[in-house]
Amino acid sequence: MKDQIKIGQAGTLESSDVLVFVRFSPLQKGIKIELESPSEKCFGKIIIRKIEETLNLLGIKNIYIKAQDRGALDCTISARVETAVKRAQKSIGGKEE
């Protein structure tokens, strides 16, 4: 069970960036996104839509994502999500190879 969990991380907490954490686990059904952002009220929905769009392009249907936004642009958000997902897909048992 533990071996089937895959995690990945990308990005930083620096201004205009976003720190993205992703986890694939057999228990995770569907897409669950948690977002923390200083501009959540204004842009929260847009950021989440951007993350969903990126996952869609990558063909991901079951995943947990936590995004800690520091005012990242759209292109940064999708780049960080894609990197975190690809890192997780390459990892085994929670640790990066």
């Binding site: 995690i7 930083t12 640790k95 990066e96």
Partner: peptide
């Protein structure tokens, strides 16, 4: 950020 990345390497 660097510390968080370092922690992630340790799981």
């Amino acid at each position: 950020s660097r510390l968080v990345q370092e922690q992630f390497k340790k799981g």
